[in-house]
Design a protein around this nucleic acid. Sequence first.
DNA 1: TTTGATTAGTTGTATAAACAACTATATGCC
DNA 2: GGCATATAGTTGTTTATACAACTAATCAAA
Lengths: 146, 146
Amino acid sequence: MPNNQFKKGELYSFITGKASTAIARRLQKKFNAAGLNVTIEQWSVLYHLWKQDGISQQELCNATFRDKPSITRLVDNLERLQLVKRVPSESDRRMNLVFLTKQAQKLQEESMELAEETLNEALEGVPVERIDVCKEVLQIVYDNLK
Amino acid sequence: MPNNQFKKGELYSFITGKASTAIARRLQKKFNAAGLNVTIEQWSVLYHLWKQDGISQQELCNATFRDKPSITRLVDNLERLQLVKRVPSESDRRMNLVFLTKQAQKLQEESMELAEETLNEALEGVPVERIDVCKEVLQIVYDNLK
DNA sequence: TTTGATTAGTTGTATAAACAACTATATGCC
DNA sequence: GGCATATAGTTGTTTATACAACTAATCAAA
């Protein structure tokens, strides 16, 4: 029995992700206003490197749900901004390990604060338990399709 | 009292919209497999024209949450694909009214079926009432930020 | 050990998004 | 009517994404 509860007018937002677009735009504006010269997409790469530095581009693909060319070019741009550095792996010469620079380490705290601030603005008025339900549903959607 | 329930590891997916990205990718693959030669972004414009044909580019901006240059170029590409036609408004010569062609009308049924199918796959195993909560939360997020 | 398949990463090309700057038309106020 | 302002749409530029095709290194099996 399929989930046929989607009437026409309702599927649009789910597919186009208007909510996450709105969040990303708001966060980008905050970055710009604070003089943080990075895009949200670049920040999403830094985000995973802050969790674990020196991972390969392929691992960044998996973590950020992007394909290899996208990561190649994001790392290109981050390298031009001197926020990361590619280091060829010694154990497997096909791989690059991507390392944060000192400048990128400095970005972490401020950008994470702006991200939390943005989410607080986004979720204002929403009870915690409903947020939890929403997060769980989105996680299932992702697991169902990835 | 802000919603401080966002621990570090959790804000990422909300901001990057991995779920909606996964949905859009799956739907794009279905379009390609079915020989429907449109992008998801183009489809999102057609979607609103199927609801109401002959609206202005500005109205498409509002409906799709895109800026004016984005709509200009999407309509450019849809016009090249002979799916829409710009018609200058007679009452206000600044405006273009965007009309579906017969070819675009033919796309409606099949593409909407694929969209519903995609959402059913995405939401498999999720009870209806949790989907409703999720939709409501995302709507509030959008309203809070738009 | 050679060869065939897999994996990591890059490059080319098309589409799309955001922002700024621009043109043309319409509106409102004196 | 004439001028300032607002609105509709376009163009230029940068960044990002998807897909296909490619190179180089590794692995595995005969």
